[in-house]
Every structure is written in structure tokens, then in C-alpha cells.
Design a protein around this nucleic acid. Structure first.
Length: 546
RNA sequence: GCGCCUGUAGCUCAAUUGGAUAGAGCGUUGGAUUCCGGUUCCAAAGGUUGGGGGUUCGAUUCCCUUCAGGCGUACCA
């Protein structure tokens, strides 16, 4: 609805520009942050002022006088400040949108701008060497929420987790389990410092011991131990993810890229482009030929590829699998890697504009006011499960989404606990529960919401402010998705709750006037829908009672 | 050294992508309920947007410079 009004206003301005035969002027329409600057605002007079060398207020006056508008849509036009033209939209324009919320219900806010575009969101992608930590938590919540946002916009989304179960870290993992196993059957062992210190290693060893006894006492092959550890770790990871209320569609194993010859294909393609060189016993990707400062090793002297090569092959597969939008969510430590991957893809002829790499900053763990570098091997991390045990799933999701992903996040468990008690998540959920309660009270008095409540009776400032806000949800979802900024939904929900509480304080819903009661119940119902839809979008519950 | 990210109220964070008077929560101080859930609402105090320069009608936002923190700059992933 707001969209329709925007295009209406835009047309009015366009007509003016055409009459004046002014071309190539971009019309900007903004929603002013201050509500006494109207509902829509344009800076067109300010833009024209420098072209025409006239006083901007004078131009604004002229535009205001020339424009002929429908009083049912625009209430009035004002000129303010240095020459802004502010449009006040009439209340009647909003009422039909409010009814629309009541009819669309769960569907309200969704759109189909994505047109089923085949989209992949890759996130977490932690190798199975230990439980998910709060660091992964931020990425997990961000990734899933971005996926939900795109789904709400009509994209066909696949959530994908990429992992590597070969390599050095996994060997150390297997070896760590084997040593703990030997310890359990009474052998004397020395447990190296750089092995995995976590207690979950001993847990896996114990399970093995209970299953097979001391059968592997003299077996130095770690494959069995490694596989058992991987199986157990992955089972835990999947459980943790399920607690966060989502599910990965695909777990993609890096190993398959080797088995199916994809690694060699990439190598051949880059060779054909003369971008591969042998030097110092290793194989290099000549990124210097593509404008970078230095070349990169992609196959080590040992014959093992570095991580860049499989990353390139994996991303090529993403294209070959038909994804038209590829969203990668990485931690800040990947910042140096992906430009090389993008370069390689571009050279192989893929449209790299389809790849969006989102880098989020790290969660740094605070202990006694000091920063601790988290390491899975040293086991000095806080797991995501521990966090959820302490503060609950809803708060966990909310906590990670409140911040912009570019901001560094200092994490302190004590702070998380105290914050959870005064967390805005409860503020939002409380608004929802309160509405449910009002509806219930109404029902007990035999009052139920009719089909087309007379919402034009809603005229107080608290009512119209709330209505104007509610009908913005579709725009907020689109903006939030397209900019990959889930925290906007959080802010929107908090604002929704605030406006509702203000309305509640000033306007009694169930009153003697039956029509007014209907109108206000309609507003309550619409607010409930918006909060529930918003909560669902960020993966938190909207409870009936608290 | 170089590259990327960050620096906003005492604390944790916003700011519609260059707009008008930089906003919320927590904390502090004071106030509101005979009534649908007080986990609520209202008000006050609190700012040189790290510092300095520039671009223009207009800068938290863009450019330069400087300071501070994080990450990277591996034949580790």
C-alpha cells in the first residue's frame, strides 16, 4: 500500500519534471525519521537548486503549487527546512492495508520478488573436530535467519554445510580419541598439549571401550577412532542445530571433490588459462597475473592441495548444480581467501556477481574482563549448547541477531545471563502474550472479531502510529533480506512492541462502544499477526502466555 | 609494513544507505494503575559521532590523514 502511494507521489513529481522538461533527475522519496516531517519526503527541490541556480525553498513552493493531488490519498503538502517537500498521507489510505493484514494472516509480509530463484546459503561449515561454539552460534543464527528472509521473499533456498573430514586436524582428533581409549583400558599415556583437550574426546573413547572392550589395544591405525569421533561430533552438531530450530539441507563433503575428479578439472582449466606455474617444488595459482600482489600456493610440495583449490572447485560445483544466487557466510578469518576463489571462478567464465560473500566479525570470549582466544583444540570455548542451557533458545537467537554482523561481539557468559533477564526478546514476546490475553478476555464476554471491522474509527495518534508501522512489514522484510541485515527485523519488532504498549496504555480495547471495540480488536489482531510473523522470521517463539 | 572490519550517551547497540532536532534499551533521578497481564507507560539528566582536514545546500555515512582495538597477510582449514 505504501508502495502504491509512493509511486503515486513519484508520478506527481514526474509530471512536474516533464512539464519543466527536466531530465535525468532522480526522484528520492524517503520516510522521514521525525514524524512531524510527514509520511513521505523528497529532496528534489534541493537537487534542482544547484542545477537551476535558484533558491531551493522557492522551487519547493512552485512544485507544491503546481502539483494536483487527490485529497483522499494525500492530506496535505508542506515545505520545511532548507527545502524538503513533505507529504502527509491521509488516514483512509492506511485502513485498507490494515484489513489486508487481517485477511493475509501468516502470509502477510511475504513476497515473491525472488521468483523461486535457486539460492544457496552456505554457513557454519565447521569441520567435525568438536562441538559448535558461541563463535559458530553467531554464524548459525545469521545464516539460518538470512535463509528464512530469502524464503519469505520467494527464493528457493538450500541451506548447506561444507566440511572436510580428512586432513591434519582430523588425524589429530582420531589420535586424541585413541590415546583416551588407551587410558581407559589402563595404559599409561602421555597426552600431548596440542591434541584435543575437550572432555567430549573421553566420552567418545568411553563409548568405544564399552562397545569393543580392549580389542583395539594394539591397533595403531586411527581410522576407526577418527570415524567414531566424526560420527559422534556430527550427531552432536546436528542436535545443536535442531535446538536452534532449523535443519541443514545438504552436508557437502570436500572429499567428494577429489573422488569425482573435480579438483583436477579446476587445475586443468586454470592451466589452460596459463595461470598455473610450478615453482619451488609447489604448484602456484598466478594471481599476480590478475592484479594481485603475490601468487598463491594451491598444491603443496607434499602433493596435498591447500584449502584454496578445493574451495574453488566447490564453488564451481555450486554453479554447476544450478544455483543462481550463492550466499557464503564466513568468519573474518576468511577475508583473505575468497577474493582468490572469486578470481578463479571469473577466469573459468562464471558470473561471480551471483556470489555474495558475507563476512561477520568474531565473537571474542571475555573471562574476568580479559579476552580469551577460543580454540577447539585447547577446549577453552563456550559451547552453543551451554549458552542455550543458560539463557534459552529464543534469547540465544535474539542475542546474536541484535548486532550488525560487522560489529565485533564481546561475549561474557555472566553478561549474557543478566542481559537475558532484561532482554528485549521478552519485551516483544510480552506484547504478543498481552494481545492474546485481551482477545481471550473478549471471548469470555462473548466478543469475537468480525470480518470487516470498522477500522476507520481508529483515529488517535497511538492508533494511527501503530497502523502505519504495522503495514511496513513487507518492506522491512525485503530490505532486510536484500541487504542481508537480519538485525533490522529485531529493531522493527521492538518498535512494534513499543507502539503497541503505548496504544494499550492510552486506548482501552474492550469498551461499551461495540464498533470501536471491533475496530480496536482488529488492530490487536493485526499487531499479533505482525509480531508472530516477525518472530517466526527470526526463529523465535511468539507465546500465548508467559 | 600492507589489506579488511570496527570506534556513536556511563554500559550494550541503532540511525531508512548523503538529509531536517544523531535515537533505543540498561543504569541514574522523578512520576503514572478503582479498569483488558506493571515483564507496562510518561518525563528528566546524559553527545566535540576517537582526533584533525577535505568534498557540498547538507557528512555518523564519501575521500585524505592520524590514534586505538580485532582479523588476515602460511606449502594451517
Amino acid at each position: 500500500m505504501i508502495m502504491r502511494i509512493e509511486t503515486y507521489v513519484e508520478n506527481l513529481l514526474q509530471i512536474y519534471l516533464e512539464e519543466k522538461s527536466l531530465k535525468n533527475v532522480k526522484i528520492n522519496l524517503d520516510k522521514p525519521k521525525h514524524k512531524n516531517f510527514g509520511d513521505l519526503s523528497t529532496n528534489i527541490a534541493l537537487q534542482l537548486a544547484s542545477h537551476l541556480k535558484l533558491n531551493p525553498r522557492q522551487i519547493a513552493e512552485e512544485i507544491k503549487n503546481k502539483i494536483k493531488f487527490d485529497k483522499n490519498i494525500i492530506e496535505k503538502i508542506e515545505i520545511a527546512g532548507p527545502g524538503f517537500i513533505n507529504f502527509y498521507i491521509s488516514n483512509t489510505s492506511y485502513y485498507s492495508s490494515l484489513i489486508q493484514i487481517l485477511t493475509e494472516k501468516e502470509e502477510f509480509g511475504k513476497s515473491n520478488i525472488g521468483k523461486n530463484l535457486k539460492t544457496q546459503v552456505e554457513f557454519i561449515s565447521a569441520n567435525p573436530t568438536g562441538p559448535l561454539t558461541i563463535g559458530h552460534g553467531r554464524q548459525a543464527v545469521l545464516g539460518d535467519t538470512i535463509a528464512r528472509l530469502y524464503e519469505a521473499c520467494g527464493y528457493d533456498v538450500t541451506r548447506e554445510y561444507y566440511f572436510n573430514n580428512a586432513g591434519r586436524q582430523m588425524r589429530i582428533l582420531g589420535e586424541s580419541v585413541r590415546l583416551r581409549y588407551l587410558e581407559l583400558i589402563g595404559e599409561k599415556i602421555e597426552f600431548p598439549e596440542d591434541y584435543y583437550q575437550g572432555t567430549y574426546i573421553t566420552d567418545v573413547a568411553r563409548v568405544i571401550y564399552e562397545e569393543v572392550g580392549d580389542k583395539f589395544k594394539n591397533d595403531t591405525d586411527i581410522t576407526f577412532f577418527k570415524d567414531k569421533a566424526e560420527e559422534s561430533v556430527f550427531a552432536e552438531i546436528k542436535k545443536t542445530i535442531a535446538r536452534l530450530k532449523f535443519k541443514m539441507d545438504v552436508f557437502y563433503n570436500e572429499k567428494s571433490l577429489y573422488d569425482e575428479g573435480k579438483i583436477n578439472e579446476v587445475l586443468e582449466l586454470l592451466k589452460k588459462k596459463s595461470l598455473i606455474i610450478e615453482k619451488d617444488g609447489a604448484t602456484w595459482f598466478q594471481t599476480s597475473k590478475l592484479g594481485k600482489e603475490q601468487d598463491r600456493v594451491i598444491i603443496k610440495g607434499t602433493g596435498e592441495p591447500t584449502y584454496r583449490l578445493p574451495d574453488i572447485a566447490y564453488h564451481r560445483e555450486k554453479f554447476k548444480r544450478g544455483f543462481e544466487l550463492i550466499i557464503d557466510i564466513f568468519g573474518a578469518d576468511h577475508i583473505a581467501t575468497y577474493p582468490d576463489v572469486i578470481l578463479a571462478l571469473k577466469e573459468m567464465g562464471y558470473d561471480t556477481d551471483k556470489v555474495k560473500v558475507l563476512i561477520h566479525q568474531f565473537v571474542t570470549l571475555m573471562e574476568n574482563g580479559k579476552k580469551v582466544k577460543m580454540s577447539t583444540r585447547k577446549a577453552n570455548f563456550v559451547t552453543l549448547d551451554e549458552l542455550m542451557d543458560e539463557v534459552g533458545e529464543d534469547v540465544t537467537r535474539f542475542f546474536f541477531l541484535m548486532r550488525h554482523m560487522n560489529s565485533h561481539l564481546n561475549f561474557d557468559m555472566n553478561l549474557a545471563k543478566t542481559q537475558s533477564e532484561e532482554n528485549p526478546v521478552y519485551y516483544v514476546q510480552y506484547a504478543h502474550a498481552r494481545i492474546c490475553s485481551i482477545i481471550k478476555v473478549g471471548n469470555e464476554q462473548g466478543i469475537t472479531l468480525q470480518k470487516n471491522p470498522p477500522v476507520d474509527l481508529l483515529k488517535t495518534e497511538e492508533e494511527t502510529d501503530l497502523i502505519k508501522h504495522l503495514i511496513e512489514l513487507p518492506e522491512i522484510i525485503k530490505d532486510s533480506a536484500l541487504n542481508n541485515e537480519p538485525h533490522r527485523i529485531i529493531k522493527y519488532l521492538i518498535d512494534t512492541a513499543t507502539l503497541f504498549h503505548k496504544f494499550y496504555t492510552e486506548c482501552r480495547v474492550i469498551v461499551d462502544d461495540k464498533d470501536l471495540t471491533q475496530a480496536r480488536l482488529g488492530l490487536c489482531e493485526a499487531t499479533k499477526t505482525v509480531i508472530a510473523n516477525g518472530c517466526n522470521l527470526i526463529g523465535i517463539s511468539a507465546p500465548q502466555r508467559m
